[in-house]
Amino acid sequence: MSSLKGKVALVTGASSGIGAETARYFASLGCYLSLSGRNEANLKTVAEECQQNGLPKDKILLIPADLGEEEDVKKVADKTIEYFGSLDVLVNNAGVVHPASIETFTLEKFDKTFDVNVRAPLQLTHLLRPHLIKTKGAIVNVSSVYGIMAFPGMIPYCMSKTALDSLTQNSTHDLAPHGVRVNSVNPGVIKTPVFKRSGMSDERYEQFLKLCERTHAMGRPGTVDEVAKVIAFLASDDSSYVTGELITIDGGKYLLTVMTPENKE
């Protein structure tokens, strides 16, 4: 993936989890970085780690932002182009989880979920489209296996990831004639802080990870580096003929669940 060296990538949700590891891995490949996240302290730590991976400090732009806010989304796009002058890769990774079933959901939970998980990627894709067309760049949307299958008590989240996959496939048709590729990665359960941020207790989280031994064909949850490497592949010229794909990185969870219904959570 040497083609990423010297390219400019915007990674949202880069202050933790998959976004932070994607930033670190991109840095090791020599990719210049615009990093957005809500936690400014964590974002600075990630930037330091990117420097340790060989990326000069002046090739890292930090933009603290809440992508649930329309003006913050615009700020991320504007500042990225203002600083670097161009864009080669957009990684729409920022996401939130607000657990709810059909009995417990609220419109507030729905709106907060869709604002970050769907509206922000749509807005960024729209705003940055002209710059990605100039560079014949790539977009990678970080979706979820729960965009293509059901999960109890997570209606807003599952719906938002299905919508994000639709954005991937529909924007593919619009952007492919301009040489811009758009793909999604759809991870299974990955060890990240997102579940605890949603209100899951430490005990429940450990039980959730233990359950992965039964619900994932590979018998374990995934790790952030396993997702980051696929994101980098899709962002690089190594995937030059890949577009409009929803790539599951789920240790066989989707197939196992479909084939053996008794393994459902």
Rank of each mutant, 00 (worst) to 15 (best):
P64S: 04
F114N: 03
K229V: 12
T223W: 08
V258D: 10
D250M: 06
A217T: 08
A94R: 00
V194I: 15
D237F: 07
V116Y: 02
V46C: 06
H98E: 14
G19M: 02
K161M: 06
E245A: 14
V96T: 13
N183P: 07
H178N: 15
E21L: 01
Q169N: 09
K75Y: 05
G252V: 05
P56I: 00
G244H: 07
S236G: 13
L10C: 12
P156C: 05
G6V: 02
N170Q: 14
P152C: 04
R214P: 05
T215W: 00
L4I: 07
V118N: 01
T45W: 00
R197A: 12
R220H: 12
N42F: 02
K57A: 15
P64F: 03
K57T: 12
M200R: 05
G95V: 01
D165E: 15
K161Y: 03
G68D: 05
N53C: 08
V230T: 15
E108Q: 14
E40T: 14
S201E: 11
L234N: 05
Q52Y: 04
N263Y: 11
M218I: 15
T243C: 11
C158W: 02
D115E: 14
E206K: 11
M154I: 01
H131A: 02
P121N: 05
G13L: 04
Y32W: 12
S3Y: 08
C31G: 08
F84M: 05
F233N: 10
V189K: 04
N170A: 10
E49L: 10
Q123A: 12
H98C: 03
D238E: 15
V142W: 00
L167M: 09
T162N: 12
L10S: 08
A14E: 11
P99G: 06
R38P: 13
I148L: 12
V91L: 08
G95F: 00
I81D: 11
L164Q: 08
G153Y: 00
F151A: 15
Q207I: 01
C31P: 09
L35D: 09
G37M: 03
T125S: 15
V224L: 04
P130R: 00
R204T: 14
K5Y: 09
I133P: 13
G68F: 01
M200A: 10
K75P: 06
N92K: 04
E206D: 15
E40H: 10
S240W: 02
V189E: 10
D88P: 13
V46W: 01
H216E: 12
M200Q: 11
